[in-house]
Simulated scan of single mutants.
Amino acid sequence: MAEQLEQVESMRRQLIGDVAHELRTPLTAIKGTAEALMDGVLPASTETYQQIHSEAGRLSRLVDDLQELSRVESRSTQLDIHPVDSAS
Score class of each variant (00 low, 15 high):
D65G: 06
D64T: 01
R58I: 07
L66R: 07
E47V: 02
D64R: 00
L66S: 13
T46V: 13
L66F: 15
Y49H: 09
A56K: 05
D65Q: 06
V41W: 09
S45K: 08
T46C: 06
L59R: 05
E47R: 03
M38Q: 10
E55H: 07
L59Y: 01
T48E: 07
V41I: 15
T48K: 02
D65V: 00
R61N: 13
A56N: 06
L66Y: 11
L42Y: 04
E55I: 01
D65S: 15
D64G: 05
I52M: 11
D39G: 07
L62R: 01
P43R: 01
E47T: 03
V63Y: 11
G57F: 00
Q51A: 08
R58G: 08
V41F: 09
A44N: 14
L62N: 02
R58N: 10
L59Q: 10
Q51F: 06
Q51L: 08
L37G: 04
E55A: 15
P43F: 02
P43K: 02
A44M: 12
P43N: 11
R58L: 12
D39N: 12
D65F: 01
Q50N: 13
G57P: 02
G40Y: 14
E47N: 02
R58V: 07
Y49W: 11
S54K: 13
P43H: 00
G57K: 04
E47D: 09
H53F: 11
D64C: 04
L42Q: 09
L37D: 10
P43A: 05
Q67K: 09
T48V: 10
L37K: 09
L59D: 04
Y49D: 04
